[in-house]
Write a protein that binds this DNA or RNA. Structure first.
Lengths: 153, 153
DNA sequence: TATTGTTATACTCTATAACTATA
DNA sequence: TATAGTTATAGAGTATAACAATA
């Protein structure tokens, strides 16, 4: 009665499908790990970017996190309430702020990134070290190629 | 004034970060391609599964698509309104339905999967064919390892 | 007139749980 | 009592656009 056939594009051989399944699985996993230290996945990109460099304006942060400007506003409100971040006046512009991590926000980096590393390691554990490196390298190459595409347009 | 430093986990070397960036980018791209044929990304997993095999119950479909049962109900309502899918009575159970593609739904497969293939190819174009294969193989291995992890727990 | 950031509002998505009808 | 499926409803997340302050 039902119709099982050779599909013209099997899901398991579709790059996009594999990335989507994996991304979803990784996000769920990291989110539940982050709950353990009072964080959640939606705060993650912002914190991650600030651990790399703080003292940014909201616009710079928005760009690095690939979020919308109004999202950044609200994420920072949340992070300020949690005392992980503070907005300080911009030295030369009175309409811009600079966003800094508080001591508490800085102190969280070790614990939080360790969670992310564990999470990554867990997912990659099916691969030997050499293949893990290879996979990261290939992914970076795809992303880099994608960005240069955008520039050339 | 601002603080740029060596982070304990640079984003570009984090597997999860790479997958998330790529997944987001792929999803946006495929979604905009799908709009061109009247579809959208949220309908995609269901259709994709049905092109592989139709005549499934909603429960089976829910499982294969990794969605919630109430989501499946509404997606199928939408797909029925679009005349791509139909619910037929189950031969032995009066509470279950079997979900079938209509002729129109079947006819869409070629065009739709071609879009997905193009989209995948565009993203993978930075890699030579041998590396594309390698990448798919590694991703499959990670996903397979992940699933066997779940089983062993 | 453009930019930085905030807010109001509407819309979509998702989650919880109650419900019907079966089995 | 459990299962298949639907629906109501609440909450979160996202998008549009209007707004104030500043450049």
């Amino acid at each position: 009665m039902n119709n099982k056939k050779q599909p013209s594009l099997p899901r398991q051989s579709s790059f996009g499908w594999l990335i989507a399944v994996l991304g979803n699985d990784l996000a769920t996993s990291l989110d539940s790990h982050l709950k353990g230290i009072g964080l959640s996945l939606n705060l993650w990109p912002t914190l991650f970017a600030l651990w790399e460099e703080d003292g940014l304006t909201q616009s710079e942060l928005t760009e690095r996190c690939n979020t919308a400007h109004y999202t950044t506003t609200r994420l920072l409100d949340t992070l300020e309430k949690m005392a992980l971040v503070e907005r300080r006046p911009h030295p030369t512009s009175r309409r811009a702020h600079l966003v800094f991590l508080t001591e508490q926000g800085k102190a969280l980096e070790q614990k939080a990134t360790q969670l992310a590393k564990d999470c990554n390691a867990e997912f990659l554990s099916a691969l030997p070290a050499s293949e893990q490196d290879e996979l990261n390298k290939l992914l970076l190459k795809v992303i880099a190629g994608r960005n240069s595409d955008l520039i050339s347009k």
